[in-house]
Amino acid sequence: MSFTRRETLLMAMGTAFAAVVPFKAFADVDGDIATFTGGAEVGTGGITLIAPEIAENGNTVPIEVDAPGAVSIMVLATGNPTPAVGTFNFGPLAGAQRASTRIRLAGTQDVIAIAKMPDGSFVQATQEVKVTIGGCGG
């Protein structure tokens, strides 16, 4: 089957426009996790990560992490040049082990939140955030 030049061009444009191609992780996400967990197993459950499915602009993406009873929560953006986003350490007067902030995402990628629990165990939540490219100087 042969494509006309127009069809080839359209297919190429289609791939380019569909800006959901996940970025490869530039740096060692596993290394960051291992440093935080000391190599311990990471389970699931007991931690919530709220992030938009589609971020209107990758420069300012609102996220929230919540892990009742956690000692601390680390957030990683697996597709950023440097995955580390921040670590929230909860003190004795924290009313809840919850925090909201705004982060930068370089492209569509998985965002990971890992909570360290008081008994030394770890749990994580992951969400893919699609980062779109706007048309008007976006």
Partner: peptide, 20 residues
Amino acid sequence: IRADHLSQGMINGFPTYRLK
């Protein structure tokens, strides 16, 4: 337009804080 939702181009919200 690509993934941007085109507005009517109103300026009642200016100056605007752009996330970009």
